[in-house]
């Protein structure tokens, strides 16, 4: 027993804790599957030009709506573009919008949450009321209204989608900062005479950031789902970009005759979202076991 403790102490803290975290993360096989899937999609998105056999936007009038063949593994679309290549590049669009939107939302939301918790009083009330107002509009109506105003470029899309999840991050950051502010260890640091900004830098921020990381990982899937939904309705990212939602929307009339054309992008979308969520749940469980199985 005693030797074990000393052996453990001999290891430097950081490396040991990182290993503990990874072991906790991959403890469940399903999380491993999710993580591998996520990494797979990320790699495809990163190296899309190397993976895709064709330029996704080159139109070949003679070869439209082909079935599976060695030349075109998933066939071609109604303009004769290679479906597989379009899907590969679609992963780029989906992941990029999802990650960008989430990063913006998490950053902005955390900042506002800190502001609300720090100032309290009227500032807090106004921010909370603003969140409530945003929440009272169905996300789809909100995004539609914003698309109408801002238009549908990729960055605009990211901003629009992040606006629907900002309230969530604001509330979460506010709650976690408030609970940390009330904790004894903050009191202890204050009573030792620690200055305000060091208090935030050393104690409050490091402790409030992990729930935000967890929710952000879980949020990427949601944003991707939202983006593809908007594209499916024809108000998402504008057409030349090969977004999965847009491909599905375009292929929709051919479900009867060319099911693969519709179902392949559907399958990609479902697989990516599921992998991302499994990965997100894994991160949550590994970072904070007490949160296990709580998100809706």
């Amino acid at each position: 027993m005693r030797e074990k403790i000393e052996a453990r102490a001999a290891h430097s803290g950081r490396g040991r804790r990182a290993r503990q975290f990874l072991r906790a993360l991959f403890h469940r096989k399903i999380v491993l599957v999710g993580s591998i899937g996520t990494i797979f999609f990320v790699l495809i998105a990163l190296f899309a030009p190397l993976v895709a056999p064709y330029d996704p936007n080159v139109i070949d009038k003679g070869a439209y709506l082909l079935g599976m063949s060695p030349l075109h593994p998933l066939g071609t679309d109604l303009y004769g573009r290679d479906l597989f290549s379009r899907l590969v590049f679609g992963a780029r669009v989906s992941l990029l919008t999802g990650v960008t939107a989430t990063l913006i939302a998490a950053a902005a939301g955390s900042l506002l949450g800190i502001v609300a918790a720090y100032y309290g009083g009227i500032v807090d009330k106004i921010l909370l009321r603003a969140c409530e107002t945003l929440d009272a509009i169905p996300y789809i109506a909100l995004t539609m209204a914003l698309v109408a105003i801002l238009g549908n470029g990729m960055l605009n899309m990211a901003v629009i989608m992040c606006s629907t999840c900002v309230p969530f991050f604001v509330r979460m950051m506010r709650a976690s900062v408030l609970s940390i502010l009330n904790s004894d260890y903050i009191l202890a640091a204050k009573l030792s005479g620690q200055s305000e900004w060091k208090l935030w830098l050393k104690h409050i921020l490091p402790n409030s950031v992990s729930p935000i990381i967890v929710s952000a990982t879980q949020n990427v899937g949601n944003t991707i789902m939202m983006e593809s939904g908007l594209s499916f309705l024809g108000i998402g990212i504008s057409v030349p970009m090969a977004s999965w939602g847009a491909i599905i929307s375009e292929a929709r009339p051919y479900l009867t005759t060319h099911p693969l054309y519709v179902l392949a992008p559907c399958a990609c979308l479902a697989a990516l979202i599921i992998c991302l969520n499994l990965f997100g749940d894994g991160i949550r469980d590994a970072l904070d076991p007490s949160l296990r199985g709580e998100t809706a």
């Binding site: 803290g13 904790s183 004894d184 260890y185 009191l187 202890a188 640091a189 050393k202 104690h203 402790n207």
Partner: peptide, 8 residues
């Protein structure tokens, strides 16, 4: 609760 969980 009186020790910062992230500090050594």
């Amino acid at each position: 609760s009186s020790l910062d969980p992230r500090q050594t």
